[in-house]
Design a binder for these strands. Sequence first.
DNA 1: CTAAAAATCAAATAAACATTTTAAATTATA
DNA 2: TATAATTTAAAATGTTTATTTGATTTTTAG
Lengths: 210, 210
Amino acid sequence: MAKDTPQRLLDAALDVFAEQGYQAATIQEIVKRAGTNIAAINYHFRDKASFYAEVVLYGCEKQGVGQPDFLQAENDPEQQLYLFIQWFLQRGLRLGTASLMDQIHMQELANPSPVLDKVVEKLIRPVHLQLRQIIYALLPDNSEEQVIRFHCFSVIGQCNLYKIGKPVMTRLYPDMQLDEQCMQELAKHIYLVSLAGIQAQNQQSGNNHG
Amino acid sequence: MAKDTPQRLLDAALDVFAEQGYQAATIQEIVKRAGTNIAAINYHFRDKASFYAEVVLYGCEKQGVGQPDFLQAENDPEQQLYLFIQWFLQRGLRLGTASLMDQIHMQELANPSPVLDKVVEKLIRPVHLQLRQIIYALLPDNSEEQVIRFHCFSVIGQCNLYKIGKPVMTRLYPDMQLDEQCMQELAKHIYLVSLAGIQAQNQQSGNNHG
DNA sequence: CTAAAAATCAAATAAACATTTTAAATTATA
DNA sequence: TATAATTTAAAATGTTTATTTGATTTTTAG
């Protein structure tokens, strides 16, 4: 038929698995969207489980290229933090591979599978390490490991809620619209809170040591 | 057989649905744990979908009783905020109905169903309104609606990450153990960051108006 | 207290659905 | 043309949900 059935299967499956999760997704729906038939899955990818693993890996690689680097020397850590927050927030909102992988991430949080290990290593850890570097630069030199982690997770946690918690948020506040403008204000807000938190930490540490 | 089959079914189902989500959970597993057979589901609760709705409602009512009230007059808003964070964090860690409903919440975020509306109204909104009151008291009188919401979501977001993101966190930092002591330090951290964020907001608002 | 009616439960069966396998047909390629 | 790779349709397998049927228990009325 058309060209590159495996490719069409991967793309269709990424959509379906993101929308519905591994269990709820049926290979029937996937092959229907890919415009082929059921046996194609078995021929190109052994079975559903192996197929899912390949789909997620495919999504990781697709998103992996073109991840921005926030640790450019010309920016001070404050700027880097702001840019990170802005990027991280917007990623989930825009359509495309990134938001699909965010949905897969979500599905994996609800029902972890062996695939989660690779998602963490390929997508999450690299991003996390960048944030960690930024936070590290903003904290005193002798900061405890736990303090660094906590501040990272404070930033991530604030951002994540707007991806993960959307279904609840729209029910709590039906008038709330998470559009581009709101995202910008939100980025400023999270930056303000996070930086204030770090500075408060610095003061406290200073008192403890002085 | 034993007494009150519907009751045993509800309790067993709450476990299974929380663990696996609606799709992945099978009524076979549920009736097995409840010590009865499949027909009991169809007899007492029409079908799987209706049954799930009743299970979630049951969970809501079970947890709804005994929710603490943080708006006691004897505490100042700062104390209230700290107690709220501490309670909210610990709720997910401890075993019992609360953590089960957190898991259901999680499953509903990944794959929302009509039931989510009721979970929001019965469980989430009441808690959210309490936090909102606390935040409101900490902000200037003329604060914008959006600012209030953002600060609420900053607190919630930071706490939620440790419930929702646990599978990722343990992979990022295998040495991290979210035990009671860690929770206490975490509560202090989130309180520090959140309060510093609010105070920074107050300063900024003051500048804007003055 | 007893008989009829209703409610509850268990086992087997049926129906629906999903996945995997098989085998035949088609297409591409050497 | 012969061979291998791919696609298709159909059937087999397994799993899950829904229904039926008959037995047991409980309730209600006389």
